[in-house]
């Protein structure tokens, strides 16, 4: 028994060393860096200076506000995913094929999806060409911040709704079919069943989808912003994760970028804790 305990531990150890060395340690290192002024070679202890600078930095305020603007995508994605999942759940002919189609954007890189949208809304892109068919002059969508944000939101919805409708579909499939039958026998119509059985039964999956969408808007917009708008015009579409990148590789103080990353880390941690609470409730499913 002791022998096999040693073998088991040795089998886990290589993975642990790599994960500890290149994920856990870097996070702690980021904490340290955030208290210093550094160019990567010398570290100058500055205490809370970086944090104070961040809280009084108007660009950071604007960028944080931008992230909240991107939250508009959350209800849009969830609503379209919900509609699709409920319709898929009717299991009409070929629904399995649709499942694969809806999943398709999810296997593509954000760079690919982002460029498809950038191209489509470019000066000689498909959208302008289409508007041109009705005699409209081509527009420069990306010099306008509202259009730029809308285009990124559109990319988010397009690439996100399919996967999430499959998550919701998994939730729907786990509802006991007897409940539906009983309701049908009691004379409840389709809409009534949707409202009183289907939706209440997937509220936990809905909660999960809600949280991952918010996490996504705060921590994973880098790719879209990078290829679609590069944060512009000005800082109008720059998100926190993109600002971390900008600060890290275009300024001479990595400490400031690290402090921003640490704040993002706590924010994400808070949301994850919230998600875990949602999941505790779900244990008995």
């Amino acid at each position: 028994m002791r022998q096999s305990k040693l073998v088991g531990t040795l089998a886990v150890l290589p993975s642990f060393v790599i994960v500890a060395g290149f994920m856990a340690f870097p996070v702690m290192f980021a904490f340290y860096i955030s208290f210093t002024k550094t160019n990567g070679l010398t570290y100058d202890w500055r205490g809370l200076d970086n944090y104070i600078a961040i809280f009084s930095d108007p660009i950071v305020h604007q960028v944080f506000l931008n992230n909240f603007k991107f939250l508009i995508s959350v209800p849009l994605v969830i609503f379209s995913a919900l509609v699709c999942s409920i319709l898929l759940f009717e299991q009409f002919k070929g629904w399995k094929f649709f499942r694969v189609i809806f999943f398709l954007p999810n296997v593509l890189s954000v760079a690919v999806i982002g460029l498809i949208f950038r191209n489509a809304f470019g000066y000689d892109g498909a959208v302008n060409q289409f508007l041109g068919l009705f005699g409209n002059e081509p527009m420069q969508f990306f010099i306008d911040s509202n259009y730029s944000i809308l285009i990124i939101i559109l990319a988010l919805v397009w690439s996100g709704f399919g996967y999430q409708s499959l998550l919701l579909l998994a939730g729907l499939t786990s509802i006991n079919p007897a409940v539906f039958e009983a309701a049908a026998i009691d004379g409840a119509g389709w809409w009534r069943r949707l409202w009183s059985i289907t939706l209440p039964n997937i509220r936990k999956v809905l909660g999960f989808v809600f949280i991952i969408n918010i996490l996504y808007t705060f921590a994973s917009l880098f790719g879209f912003v990078f290829v679609i708008t590069a944060g512009g015009p000005g800082y109008e579409t720059t998100t926190i994760d993109f600002l971390v990148y900008l600060r890290a590789f275009s300024s001479n103080n990595l400490g400031s970028g690290a402090a921003l990353a640490v704040l993002l880390f706590f924010f994400i941690g808070l949301l994850t804790l919230l998600q875990n609470r949602v999941f505790k409730l779900q244990k008995d499913d």
Binding site: T9, A11, A24, A30, I33, S220, A248, G257
Partner: peptide, 28 residues
Amino acid sequence: LPVFGSKFFTATFVSVMLLPGPVLIIPI
């Protein structure tokens, strides 16, 4: 298999699973 401190290992793996990339870019 039995593993020394298996709870500790599992906890470490789970806790870093959702770590956002932007937090890691500078230190990595």
